[in-house]
Write a protein that binds this DNA or RNA. Structure first.
Lengths: 211, 211
DNA sequence: AACAAGTCTGAAACTTGTTCTACATTACCG
DNA sequence: CGGTAATGTAGAACAAGTTTCAGACTTGTT
Protein backbone atom coordinates (compact mmCIF):
# COMPACT_ATOMS: atom_id res chain seq x y z
CA UNK A 1 0.00 0.00 0.00
CA UNK A 2 2.77 2.42 0.80
CA UNK A 3 4.84 3.67 -2.06
CA UNK A 4 8.18 4.50 -0.53
CA UNK A 5 11.17 5.13 -2.68
CA UNK A 6 12.04 1.55 -3.46
CA UNK A 7 15.35 0.51 -4.83
CA UNK A 8 13.48 0.17 -8.08
CA UNK A 9 15.44 0.90 -11.18
CA UNK A 10 12.69 2.22 -13.42
CA UNK A 11 11.62 5.76 -12.84
CA UNK A 12 8.42 7.59 -13.62
CA UNK A 13 8.24 10.05 -16.44
CA UNK A 14 11.41 12.05 -16.40
CA UNK A 15 13.75 9.84 -18.41
CA UNK A 16 16.58 10.49 -16.02
CA UNK A 17 16.09 9.17 -12.49
CA UNK A 18 18.60 6.30 -12.39
CA UNK A 19 20.38 6.00 -15.72
CA UNK A 20 18.85 2.87 -17.28
CA UNK A 21 21.16 0.62 -19.22
CA UNK A 22 20.30 -0.26 -22.77
CA UNK A 23 18.99 -3.71 -21.90
CA UNK A 24 16.89 -2.22 -19.16
CA UNK A 25 15.45 0.33 -21.49
CA UNK A 26 14.64 -2.50 -23.86
CA UNK A 27 12.95 -4.50 -21.10
CA UNK A 28 10.89 -1.51 -20.08
CA UNK A 29 9.82 -1.01 -23.66
CA UNK A 30 8.92 -4.69 -24.09
CA UNK A 31 6.81 -4.53 -20.96
CA UNK A 32 4.95 -1.44 -22.06
CA UNK A 33 4.38 -2.96 -25.46
CA UNK A 34 3.02 -6.18 -24.01
CA UNK A 35 0.81 -4.17 -21.69
CA UNK A 36 -0.67 -2.14 -24.53
CA UNK A 37 -1.11 -5.25 -26.63
CA UNK A 38 -2.99 -7.16 -23.97
CA UNK A 39 -5.02 -4.09 -23.10
CA UNK A 40 -6.03 -3.67 -26.73
CA UNK A 41 -7.40 -7.18 -26.69
CA UNK A 42 -9.53 -7.21 -23.61
CA UNK A 43 -9.19 -4.04 -21.62
CA UNK A 44 -8.28 -3.71 -17.98
CA UNK A 45 -9.05 -7.29 -17.01
CA UNK A 46 -7.05 -8.74 -19.87
CA UNK A 47 -3.86 -7.13 -18.62
CA UNK A 48 -2.76 -9.87 -16.26
CA UNK A 49 0.58 -9.41 -14.66
CA UNK A 50 1.72 -13.00 -15.28
CA UNK A 51 0.83 -12.65 -18.94
CA UNK A 52 2.55 -9.30 -19.27
CA UNK A 53 5.64 -10.83 -17.73
CA UNK A 54 5.56 -13.80 -20.06
CA UNK A 55 4.79 -11.75 -23.19
CA UNK A 56 7.70 -9.48 -22.48
CA UNK A 57 10.06 -12.30 -21.50
CA UNK A 58 10.68 -10.99 -18.06
CA UNK A 59 10.25 -12.59 -14.66
CA UNK A 60 7.26 -11.59 -12.62
CA UNK A 61 9.51 -10.16 -9.93
CA UNK A 62 11.27 -8.03 -12.50
CA UNK A 63 8.00 -6.71 -13.85
CA UNK A 64 7.16 -5.60 -10.33
CA UNK A 65 10.53 -3.96 -9.97
CA UNK A 66 9.85 -1.85 -13.04
CA UNK A 67 6.21 -1.15 -12.26
CA UNK A 68 5.20 -1.60 -8.64
CA UNK A 69 1.57 -2.41 -9.46
CA UNK A 70 -0.79 -3.10 -12.29
CA UNK A 71 -2.14 0.41 -12.03
CA UNK A 72 1.35 1.87 -12.20
CA UNK A 73 1.93 -0.17 -15.32
CA UNK A 74 -1.23 0.98 -17.02
CA UNK A 75 -0.71 4.60 -16.08
CA UNK A 76 2.77 4.39 -17.55
CA UNK A 77 1.22 2.88 -20.65
CA UNK A 78 -1.05 5.88 -20.84
CA UNK A 79 1.89 8.27 -20.48
CA UNK A 80 3.43 6.52 -23.41
CA UNK A 81 0.36 6.82 -25.60
CA UNK A 82 -0.20 10.43 -24.65
CA UNK A 83 3.33 11.27 -25.61
CA UNK A 84 2.69 9.90 -29.10
CA UNK A 85 -0.53 11.84 -29.35
CA UNK A 86 1.15 15.03 -28.24
CA UNK A 87 3.83 14.88 -30.90
CA UNK A 88 1.27 13.95 -33.53
CA UNK A 89 -0.87 16.90 -32.54
CA UNK A 90 2.05 19.25 -32.68
CA UNK A 91 2.61 18.24 -36.27
CA UNK A 92 -1.05 18.70 -37.17
CA UNK A 93 -2.46 21.42 -34.96
CA UNK A 94 -6.21 22.01 -34.83
CA UNK A 95 -7.56 24.54 -37.28
CA UNK A 96 -10.54 26.10 -35.47
CA UNK A 97 -11.12 29.81 -35.21
CA UNK A 98 -11.48 30.26 -31.47
CA UNK A 99 -9.59 28.64 -28.60
CA UNK A 100 -12.77 26.81 -27.59
CA UNK A 101 -13.17 25.37 -31.06
CA UNK A 102 -9.57 24.29 -31.25
CA UNK A 103 -9.69 22.56 -27.89
CA UNK A 104 -12.91 20.78 -28.77
CA UNK A 105 -11.44 19.71 -32.08
CA UNK A 106 -8.33 18.39 -30.38
CA UNK A 107 -10.28 16.41 -27.84
CA UNK A 108 -12.58 14.98 -30.47
CA UNK A 109 -9.58 13.90 -32.45
CA UNK A 110 -8.20 12.15 -29.40
CA UNK A 111 -11.60 10.64 -28.81
CA UNK A 112 -11.69 9.21 -32.30
CA UNK A 113 -8.26 7.70 -31.73
CA UNK A 114 -9.54 6.04 -28.59
CA UNK A 115 -12.57 4.73 -30.44
CA UNK A 116 -10.24 2.75 -32.63
CA UNK A 117 -8.86 0.98 -29.54
CA UNK A 118 -11.70 0.97 -27.08
CA UNK A 119 -10.25 -1.81 -24.97
CA UNK A 120 -6.96 -0.03 -24.61
CA UNK A 121 -8.84 3.11 -23.69
CA UNK A 122 -10.76 1.17 -21.11
CA UNK A 123 -7.63 -0.18 -19.47
CA UNK A 124 -5.88 3.16 -19.36
CA UNK A 125 -8.77 5.30 -18.20
CA UNK A 126 -9.94 2.83 -15.58
CA UNK A 127 -6.42 2.59 -14.20
CA UNK A 128 -6.15 6.35 -14.15
CA UNK A 129 -9.30 6.92 -12.14
CA UNK A 130 -8.78 3.92 -9.91
CA UNK A 131 -5.27 4.94 -8.95
CA UNK A 132 -4.79 5.64 -5.26
CA UNK A 133 -2.31 7.93 -3.58
CA UNK A 134 0.64 5.64 -4.22
CA UNK A 135 0.33 6.42 -7.93
CA UNK A 136 -0.18 10.15 -7.55
CA UNK A 137 3.12 11.22 -9.06
CA UNK A 138 2.54 9.18 -12.18
CA UNK A 139 -1.07 10.26 -12.51
CA UNK A 140 0.09 13.80 -12.08
CA UNK A 141 2.46 13.39 -14.97
CA UNK A 142 -0.40 12.24 -17.14
CA UNK A 143 -2.41 15.20 -15.99
CA UNK A 144 0.36 17.62 -16.83
CA UNK A 145 0.69 16.08 -20.27
CA UNK A 146 -3.00 16.46 -20.88
CA UNK A 147 -2.92 20.03 -19.66
CA UNK A 148 -0.06 20.77 -22.00
CA UNK A 149 -2.04 19.38 -24.91
CA UNK A 150 -5.07 21.48 -24.10
CA UNK A 151 -3.06 24.63 -23.54
CA UNK A 152 -1.30 24.03 -26.84
CA UNK A 153 -4.66 23.77 -28.52
CA UNK A 154 -5.83 27.01 -26.96
CA UNK A 155 -2.86 28.72 -28.50
CA UNK A 156 -2.56 31.46 -25.92
CA UNK A 157 -0.18 34.34 -26.20
CA UNK A 158 1.29 34.62 -22.72
CA UNK A 159 0.87 32.65 -19.50
CA UNK A 160 -2.59 31.26 -18.79
CA UNK A 161 -4.56 33.02 -16.08
CA UNK A 162 -5.80 31.29 -12.96
CA UNK A 163 -9.31 31.18 -14.37
CA UNK A 164 -8.01 29.63 -17.54
CA UNK A 165 -6.15 26.97 -15.61
CA UNK A 166 -9.30 26.18 -13.70
CA UNK A 167 -11.23 25.94 -16.94
CA UNK A 168 -8.63 23.56 -18.29
CA UNK A 169 -8.91 21.42 -15.18
CA UNK A 170 -12.66 21.31 -15.57
CA UNK A 171 -12.22 20.29 -19.18
CA UNK A 172 -9.92 17.50 -18.12
CA UNK A 173 -12.39 16.36 -15.51
CA UNK A 174 -15.12 16.26 -18.09
CA UNK A 175 -12.90 14.51 -20.56
CA UNK A 176 -12.02 11.69 -18.18
CA UNK A 177 -15.45 11.25 -16.78
CA UNK A 178 -17.16 11.43 -20.14
CA UNK A 179 -14.81 8.75 -21.40
CA UNK A 180 -15.78 6.57 -18.49
CA UNK A 181 -19.47 6.90 -19.17
CA UNK A 182 -18.86 6.11 -22.81
CA UNK A 183 -16.66 3.12 -22.02
CA UNK A 184 -19.21 1.68 -19.66
CA UNK A 185 -21.92 2.07 -22.26
CA UNK A 186 -23.89 4.71 -20.40
CA UNK A 187 -23.33 7.50 -22.89
CA UNK A 188 -23.23 7.52 -26.66
CA UNK A 189 -20.46 8.92 -28.79
CA UNK A 190 -22.79 11.74 -29.75
CA UNK A 191 -23.39 12.59 -26.13
CA UNK A 192 -19.69 12.71 -25.36
CA UNK A 193 -19.26 15.05 -28.28
CA UNK A 194 -21.99 17.35 -27.05
CA UNK A 195 -20.57 17.44 -23.55
CA UNK A 196 -17.07 18.16 -24.74
CA UNK A 197 -18.32 21.01 -26.88
CA UNK A 198 -20.35 22.27 -23.96
CA UNK A 199 -17.47 22.32 -21.52
CA UNK A 200 -15.21 23.96 -24.04
CA UNK A 201 -17.49 26.96 -24.03
CA UNK A 202 -16.10 27.65 -20.58
CA UNK A 203 -12.97 28.80 -22.30
CA UNK A 204 -14.86 31.61 -23.94
CA UNK A 205 -15.76 32.84 -20.48
CA UNK A 206 -12.10 33.18 -19.58
CA UNK A 207 -10.71 34.59 -22.81
CA UNK A 208 -11.58 38.25 -23.24
CA UNK A 209 -13.04 38.84 -26.68
CA UNK A 210 -9.90 39.20 -28.83
CA UNK A 211 -11.43 41.06 -31.80
CA UNK B 1 -17.78 -11.09 -15.89
CA UNK B 2 -21.21 -11.32 -17.47
CA UNK B 3 -24.11 -9.86 -15.56
CA UNK B 4 -27.08 -11.83 -16.78
CA UNK B 5 -30.29 -11.77 -14.90
CA UNK B 6 -29.39 -14.18 -12.17
CA UNK B 7 -31.93 -15.83 -9.97
CA UNK B 8 -30.77 -13.33 -7.37
CA UNK B 9 -33.34 -12.13 -4.93
CA UNK B 10 -32.09 -8.62 -4.30
CA UNK B 11 -32.88 -6.04 -6.91
CA UNK B 12 -31.18 -2.80 -7.84
CA UNK B 13 -32.71 0.50 -6.93
CA UNK B 14 -36.42 0.26 -7.55
CA UNK B 15 -37.62 -1.25 -4.30
CA UNK B 16 -39.97 -3.54 -6.16
CA UNK B 17 -38.28 -6.10 -8.40
CA UNK B 18 -38.91 -9.32 -6.49
CA UNK B 19 -40.89 -8.56 -3.33
CA UNK B 20 -38.33 -8.95 -0.56
CA UNK B 21 -39.50 -10.52 2.65
CA UNK B 22 -38.97 -8.68 5.89
CA UNK B 23 -35.98 -10.75 6.92
CA UNK B 24 -34.46 -10.26 3.51
CA UNK B 25 -34.94 -6.54 3.73
CA UNK B 26 -33.27 -6.66 7.12
CA UNK B 27 -30.34 -8.64 5.73
CA UNK B 28 -29.92 -6.21 2.89
CA UNK B 29 -29.91 -3.33 5.35
CA UNK B 30 -27.38 -5.05 7.64
CA UNK B 31 -25.11 -5.62 4.68
CA UNK B 32 -25.27 -2.02 3.51
CA UNK B 33 -24.65 -0.84 7.04
CA UNK B 34 -21.61 -3.06 7.46
CA UNK B 35 -20.33 -1.91 4.10
CA UNK B 36 -20.62 1.76 5.00
CA UNK B 37 -19.06 1.11 8.39
CA UNK B 38 -16.02 -0.68 7.01
CA UNK B 39 -15.70 1.89 4.24
CA UNK B 40 -15.71 4.72 6.77
CA UNK B 41 -12.80 3.06 8.51
CA UNK B 42 -10.40 2.42 5.68
CA UNK B 43 -11.93 3.20 2.33
CA UNK B 44 -12.22 0.92 -0.65
CA UNK B 45 -9.58 -1.56 0.46
CA UNK B 46 -11.06 -1.95 3.91
CA UNK B 47 -14.34 -3.21 2.51
CA UNK B 48 -13.48 -6.87 2.33
CA UNK B 49 -16.26 -9.17 1.29
CA UNK B 50 -15.51 -11.74 3.98
CA UNK B 51 -15.60 -9.05 6.64
CA UNK B 52 -18.79 -7.53 5.31
CA UNK B 53 -20.35 -10.98 5.41
CA UNK B 54 -19.21 -11.58 8.95
CA UNK B 55 -20.15 -8.11 10.21
CA UNK B 56 -23.64 -8.48 8.83
CA UNK B 57 -24.04 -12.07 10.01
CA UNK B 58 -24.59 -13.45 6.57
CA UNK B 59 -22.82 -16.18 4.65
CA UNK B 60 -20.42 -15.13 1.95
CA UNK B 61 -22.56 -16.83 -0.66
CA UNK B 62 -25.58 -14.89 0.51
CA UNK B 63 -23.72 -11.61 0.32
CA UNK B 64 -22.92 -12.42 -3.29
CA UNK B 65 -26.53 -13.25 -3.97
CA UNK B 66 -27.58 -9.82 -2.78
CA UNK B 67 -24.70 -7.93 -4.38
CA UNK B 68 -22.96 -9.74 -7.21
CA UNK B 69 -19.64 -7.99 -6.68
CA UNK B 70 -17.81 -5.65 -4.38
CA UNK B 71 -18.40 -2.81 -6.79
CA UNK B 72 -22.12 -3.54 -6.90
CA UNK B 73 -22.15 -3.42 -3.13
CA UNK B 74 -20.36 -0.11 -2.92
CA UNK B 75 -22.45 1.47 -5.63
CA UNK B 76 -25.55 0.39 -3.75
CA UNK B 77 -24.04 1.92 -0.64
CA UNK B 78 -23.66 5.14 -2.56
CA UNK B 79 -27.29 5.02 -3.70
CA UNK B 80 -28.24 4.72 -0.09
CA UNK B 81 -26.17 7.70 1.01
CA UNK B 82 -27.35 9.83 -1.89
CA UNK B 83 -30.93 9.13 -0.99
CA UNK B 84 -30.31 10.51 2.48
CA UNK B 85 -28.61 13.56 1.08
CA UNK B 86 -31.43 14.19 -1.35
CA UNK B 87 -34.10 14.20 1.34
CA UNK B 88 -31.93 16.37 3.58
CA UNK B 89 -31.43 18.85 0.77
CA UNK B 90 -35.12 18.98 0.04
CA UNK B 91 -35.71 20.04 3.59
CA UNK B 92 -33.01 22.70 3.48
CA UNK B 93 -32.78 23.97 -0.08
CA UNK B 94 -29.89 26.19 -1.13
CA UNK B 95 -30.44 29.89 -0.81
CA UNK B 96 -28.40 31.39 -3.65
CA UNK B 97 -29.74 33.98 -6.06
CA UNK B 98 -29.02 32.39 -9.38
CA UNK B 99 -29.28 28.76 -10.48
CA UNK B 100 -25.50 28.59 -10.82
CA UNK B 101 -25.03 29.81 -7.26
CA UNK B 102 -27.56 27.37 -5.88
CA UNK B 103 -26.00 24.42 -7.66
CA UNK B 104 -22.53 25.38 -6.49
CA UNK B 105 -23.81 25.79 -2.96
CA UNK B 106 -25.48 22.39 -3.07
CA UNK B 107 -22.39 20.67 -4.35
CA UNK B 108 -20.18 22.37 -1.81
CA UNK B 109 -22.52 21.24 0.91
CA UNK B 110 -22.27 17.70 -0.34
CA UNK B 111 -18.54 18.10 -0.55
CA UNK B 112 -18.34 19.16 3.08
CA UNK B 113 -20.39 16.13 4.03
CA UNK B 114 -17.91 13.92 2.22
CA UNK B 115 -15.01 15.63 3.93
CA UNK B 116 -16.39 14.38 7.21
CA UNK B 117 -16.13 10.79 5.94
CA UNK B 118 -13.28 10.84 3.48
CA UNK B 119 -12.75 7.09 3.60
CA UNK B 120 -16.37 6.40 2.85
CA UNK B 121 -16.19 8.90 0.03
CA UNK B 122 -13.11 7.14 -1.30
CA UNK B 123 -14.81 3.76 -1.33
CA UNK B 124 -17.94 5.00 -3.03
CA UNK B 125 -16.36 7.22 -5.64
CA UNK B 126 -13.68 4.73 -6.57
CA UNK B 127 -16.29 2.03 -6.96
CA UNK B 128 -18.40 4.32 -9.08
CA UNK B 129 -15.69 5.16 -11.56
CA UNK B 130 -14.22 1.69 -11.59
CA UNK B 131 -17.54 0.04 -12.35
CA UNK B 132 -17.64 -1.81 -15.65
CA UNK B 133 -20.61 -2.50 -17.90
CA UNK B 134 -22.03 -5.15 -15.58
CA UNK B 135 -22.81 -2.42 -13.08
CA UNK B 136 -24.20 0.08 -15.56
CA UNK B 137 -27.81 -0.06 -14.39
CA UNK B 138 -26.83 0.65 -10.81
CA UNK B 139 -24.39 3.38 -11.75
CA UNK B 140 -27.08 4.88 -13.90
CA UNK B 141 -29.39 5.02 -10.93
CA UNK B 142 -26.77 6.93 -9.00
CA UNK B 143 -26.37 9.25 -11.93
CA UNK B 144 -30.08 9.89 -12.15
CA UNK B 145 -30.19 10.65 -8.44
CA UNK B 146 -27.36 13.11 -8.79
CA UNK B 147 -29.01 14.73 -11.76
CA UNK B 148 -32.22 15.07 -9.80
CA UNK B 149 -30.35 16.79 -6.99
CA UNK B 150 -28.72 19.25 -9.34
CA UNK B 151 -31.90 19.98 -11.22
CA UNK B 152 -33.65 20.54 -7.93
CA UNK B 153 -30.98 23.02 -6.97
CA UNK B 154 -31.36 24.85 -10.26
CA UNK B 155 -35.01 25.32 -9.47
CA UNK B 156 -36.19 25.51 -13.05
CA UNK B 157 -39.71 26.36 -14.02
CA UNK B 158 -40.49 23.86 -16.76
CA UNK B 159 -38.59 20.98 -18.32
CA UNK B 160 -34.84 21.42 -18.72
CA UNK B 161 -33.60 22.07 -22.24
CA UNK B 162 -31.14 19.80 -24.00
CA UNK B 163 -28.37 22.31 -23.39
CA UNK B 164 -29.21 22.40 -19.71
CA UNK B 165 -29.10 18.63 -19.47
CA UNK B 166 -25.72 18.65 -21.13
CA UNK B 167 -24.51 21.28 -18.69
CA UNK B 168 -25.73 19.17 -15.81
CA UNK B 169 -23.90 16.16 -17.19
CA UNK B 170 -20.73 18.21 -17.44
CA UNK B 171 -21.21 19.33 -13.87
CA UNK B 172 -21.55 15.75 -12.76
CA UNK B 173 -18.44 14.79 -14.67
CA UNK B 174 -16.52 17.57 -12.99
CA UNK B 175 -17.95 16.67 -9.63
CA UNK B 176 -16.86 13.04 -9.83
CA UNK B 177 -13.49 13.71 -11.30
CA UNK B 178 -12.71 16.58 -8.96
CA UNK B 179 -13.57 14.34 -6.03
CA UNK B 180 -11.14 11.76 -7.34
CA UNK B 181 -8.30 14.22 -7.60
CA UNK B 182 -9.06 15.43 -4.10
CA UNK B 183 -9.26 11.91 -2.69
CA UNK B 184 -5.97 10.94 -4.22
CA UNK B 185 -4.32 14.04 -2.81
CA UNK B 186 -3.67 15.71 -6.14
CA UNK B 187 -5.99 18.65 -5.57
CA UNK B 188 -6.74 20.73 -2.52
CA UNK B 189 -10.15 21.43 -1.12
CA UNK B 190 -9.78 24.99 -2.32
CA UNK B 191 -9.08 23.83 -5.83
CA UNK B 192 -12.12 21.61 -5.89
CA UNK B 193 -14.18 24.56 -4.77
CA UNK B 194 -12.84 26.75 -7.51
CA UNK B 195 -13.46 24.14 -10.15
CA UNK B 196 -17.00 23.51 -9.00
CA UNK B 197 -17.75 27.19 -9.08
CA UNK B 198 -16.17 27.44 -12.49
CA UNK B 199 -18.20 24.63 -14.01
CA UNK B 200 -21.39 25.97 -12.51
CA UNK B 201 -20.97 29.09 -14.58
CA UNK B 202 -21.90 26.91 -17.52
CA UNK B 203 -25.42 27.04 -16.26
CA UNK B 204 -25.54 30.75 -16.82
CA UNK B 205 -24.80 30.10 -20.47
CA UNK B 206 -27.91 27.95 -20.76
CA UNK B 207 -30.34 29.95 -18.68
CA UNK B 208 -31.57 33.04 -20.52
CA UNK B 209 -31.24 36.08 -18.31
CA UNK B 210 -34.45 36.00 -16.23
CA UNK B 211 -34.53 39.64 -15.16
C1' DA C 1 -48.94 -31.42 8.62
C1' DA C 2 -46.03 -32.91 4.62
C1' DC C 3 -43.89 -31.49 0.41
C1' DA C 4 -41.37 -28.80 -3.16
C1' DA C 5 -38.96 -24.76 -4.40
C1' DG C 6 -36.32 -21.41 -3.19
C1' DT C 7 -32.83 -19.42 0.34
C1' DC C 8 -29.12 -19.48 3.49
C1' DT C 9 -24.95 -21.48 5.63
C1' DG C 10 -20.24 -23.15 6.09
C1' DA C 11 -16.40 -24.38 3.98
C1' DA C 12 -13.44 -25.38 0.30
C1' DA C 13 -11.67 -24.21 -4.21
C1' DC C 14 -10.21 -21.16 -7.80
C1' DT C 15 -8.24 -16.72 -9.84
C1' DT C 16 -5.25 -13.04 -10.14
C1' DG C 17 -2.58 -9.26 -7.91
C1' DT C 18 1.31 -9.05 -4.92
C1' DT C 19 5.26 -10.60 -2.04
C1' DC C 20 9.07 -13.52 -0.86
C1' DT C 21 13.10 -16.62 -1.32
C1' DA C 22 17.03 -18.90 -3.08
C1' DC C 23 19.90 -18.88 -6.79
C1' DA C 24 21.94 -17.24 -11.42
C1' DT C 25 23.64 -13.21 -14.22
C1' DT C 26 25.36 -8.83 -15.06
C1' DA C 27 27.67 -4.54 -14.39
C1' DC C 28 31.10 -2.18 -12.33
C1' DC C 29 35.62 -1.43 -9.52
C1' DG C 30 40.08 -2.22 -8.24
C1' DC D 1 40.89 -11.03 -14.13
C1' DG D 2 38.34 -11.60 -9.39
C1' DG D 3 35.00 -9.82 -6.29
C1' DT D 4 30.83 -7.83 -5.06
C1' DA D 5 26.63 -5.41 -5.14
C1' DA D 6 22.78 -4.74 -7.92
C1' DT D 7 19.64 -6.90 -11.08
C1' DG D 8 17.14 -10.72 -13.05
C1' DT D 9 14.89 -15.58 -12.82
C1' DA D 10 11.94 -19.32 -11.38
C1' DG D 11 8.69 -20.62 -8.61
C1' DA D 12 6.38 -20.98 -4.20
C1' DA D 13 3.47 -18.55 -1.08
C1' DC D 14 0.00 -15.25 0.37
C1' DA D 15 -4.27 -12.15 0.08
C1' DA D 16 -8.74 -10.99 -1.28
C1' DG D 17 -12.48 -11.28 -4.80
C1' DT D 18 -15.38 -14.76 -6.67
C1' DT D 19 -17.42 -19.42 -7.46
C1' DT D 20 -19.10 -23.78 -6.09
C1' DC D 21 -21.38 -27.37 -3.43
C1' DA D 22 -23.68 -30.23 -0.06
C1' DG D 23 -26.69 -29.86 3.40
C1' DA D 24 -29.96 -27.13 6.67
C1' DC D 25 -33.67 -23.84 6.95
C1' DT D 26 -37.94 -21.05 5.22
C1' DT D 27 -41.80 -20.28 2.81
C1' DG D 28 -45.79 -21.14 0.38
C1' DT D 29 -48.96 -24.87 -1.24
C1' DT D 30 -52.02 -28.41 -0.99
Amino acid sequence: MTADAKTAGAGAAHPASPPLTERQEARRRRILHASAQLASRGGFDAVQMREVAESSSVALGTLYRYFPSKVHLLVATMQDQLQHMHTTLRKHPPAGETPAERVAETLMRAFRALQREPHLADAMVRALTFADRSVSPEVDTVSRLTTAIVLDAMGLEGQPTAAQLSAVRVIEHTWHSALITWLSGRASIAQVKIDIEMVCRLIDLTVPDPA
